[in-house]
């Protein structure tokens, strides 16, 4: 089996524009950012959350709490992941009670990751509400979950793979559609 690149959905500038737009939407929807906190889902949701926080700070001039959520212990698909995934820490060093949480992930697909993240969040506090921001929505939902903020809607087939790369982890920013070829 070989994985080939089919299409570049976003380059670094595209990603920057998408995040900036999402930041504006968050501010607009919540009428400012009082009580808003941003929590990224490990791994690539983490850097994306950091960047959203940074952009919002630049626009609004206030610091906004940013955290990272590790959802490994809440997954329902450990059996299908092969070798054990490494569990990492959840780093939410602020109280989430009564906060508006903007949960951030790179790709919204089946919705199972978000489901796990919702459970994980509720175990660490009682937020007023939870909103969802994703860089790419690729469809194929298996649970009744939808995003509040979407960088780009990208319809895909199930045999395709969406690969999000971020500077902090992968050395560059881009979003690719790839495909598994059975040869």
């Amino acid at each position: 089996m070989r994985i080939v690149e089919k299409h570049k959905v976003m380059d670094d500038m595209g990603m920057k524009r998408a995040l900036t737009r999402i930041a504006h939407e968050i501010i607009e929807k919540n009428k400012g950012v009082e009580n808003v906190v941003i929590i990224g889902i490990r791994r690539r949701g983490g850097p994306l959350a950091d960047r959203l926080g940074e952009i919002i700070r630049n626009i609004e001039g206030v610091d906004i709490p940013v955290g990272i959520l590790d959802i490994t212990l809440y997954r329902d698909d450990l059996t299908t992941l092969g070798p054990n995934p490494q569990v990492h820490r959840t780093e939410v060093n602020f109280n989430i009670n009564d906060k508006v949480i903007v949960l951030v992930d790179d790709v919204l697909y089946t919705g199972r990751t978000v489901r796990a993240a919702l459970d994980a969040l509720i175990d660490i506090g009682r937020p007023r509400s939870i909103q969802l921001a994703v860089l790419v929505d690729r469809g194929h939902r298996e649970l009744p979950i939808k995003a509040d903020y979407i960088g780009k809607n990208t319809p895909t087939s199930k045999s395709e793979i969406i690969t999000v790369k971020v500077e902090e982890i992968d050395g560059k920013d881009e979003v690719l559609i790839e495909e598994k070829l059975n040869e």
Binding site: L73, Y74, L78, A120
Partner: peptide, 8 residues
Amino acid sequence: RDIKKVPT
């Protein structure tokens, strides 16, 4: 933490 339980 307060809720000392995970479903794993």
